[in-house]
């Protein structure tokens, strides 16, 4: 439970409220989809997903939206400044299970960050998978994360990248509309597809419905749930969702495991 100390090596602004920190730190290797507890000393601790390539040792990448006191403090850290970290924690994306299948990744807003490590691994071992598609929705062109990387991936012939925004100016030449609209025209074989989704919960619910309409089964849809993680080891109960501890058994769940837990108001 005692955090180790890391130091910010670099900080990059991704969008008006989102920053990526490159942190120099030792520690166990992380799996795509896992998270760390990051401490802004004197302020508090927050669960933040890893957003970098897990195969690169000694360097942790976290992409953080500045929304509360802790995240705001973390995004203000400059090169050389210290922060605390515990982890990695939680269950990650099912990459082994995805081998030999089409992989459809549906990301909304900051939800692209926890999916990016999976994309790095899918592309690094591209021959292991069928079609690989990223369907990404953002609020506006200014809010698109990892823009240069998306553009470079788009040049590859072995991955499909589709980006849509909720609204745009007339200079935007890409899709405008909700991310779920991309699913219907993405062109994948539902019988051999595994889907990975991360984004706001409402967007995930509609994405799941669109994937189910397209013929993908609940057993091959995985999503990353976000709850109020505090201890990150399944003791404090802050992230409890019905019978499930999101920090320990998630954050990545197979859809059929949490389908009944996504709509009750009291959860």
């Amino acid at each position: 439970m005692v955090p180790r100390v890391g130091r910010v090596r670099r900080r990059r602004r991704e969008s008006p409220s989102v920053w990526t920190l490159e942190i120099e730190a030792d520690g166990p290797a992380a799996a795509p989809g896992q998270f760390n507890m990051l401490t802004a000393f004197g302020i508090g601790e927050a669960a933040i997903s890893l957003s970098g390539d897990p195969a690169v040792p000694g360097r942790l990448i976290h992409t953080i939206r500045a929304v509360g006191p802790v995240s705001r403090a973390l995004t203000r850290l400059g090169a050389g400044e210290a922060l605390g970290l515990r982890g990695p924690y939680g269950a990650g994306w099912p990459l082994a299970e995805a081998a030999g299948r089409d992989v459809v990744i549906v990301a909304g807003g900051l939800g692209l960050a926890p999916l990016r490590p999976a994309l790095y691994r899918l592309l690094a071992e591209r021959e292991r998978y069928g079609r690989v598609l990223l369907l990404y929705g953002a609020r506006s062109p200014a809010d698109i994360l990892f823009r240069r990387e998306l553009e470079s991936w788009r040049k590859r012939l072995d991955v499909g990248i589709e980006v849509t925004v909720d609204h745009a100016g007339s200079d935007w030449r890409g899709h405008v509309g909700v991310a779920t609209a991309l699913i219907g025209r993405a062109g994948f074989d539902p019988a051999r597809t595994i889907a990975m989704i991360c984004g706001p919960e409402i967007m995930m619910r509609f994405s799941i419905a669109a994937l189910r309409d397209a013929g993908v089964t609940s057993q091959t849809i995985f999503l990353s749930m976000e709850r109020n993680m505090k201890c990150a080891i399944g003791l404090c109960g802050h992230c409890q969702l019905g019978p499930v501890f999101v920090c320990r058994e998630g954050p990545v769940f197979r859809h059929d495991r949490v389908a009944g837990l996504m709509t009750p108001k009291e959860l």
Binding site: R139, D166, T180
Partner: peptide, 13 residues
């Protein structure tokens, strides 16, 4: 339905 999602501004801060 799409308009409803856009109105909810689900990607907002």
């Amino acid at each position: 339905q799409a308009t409803r999602m856009q109105l909810l501004d689900v990607y907002g801060d």
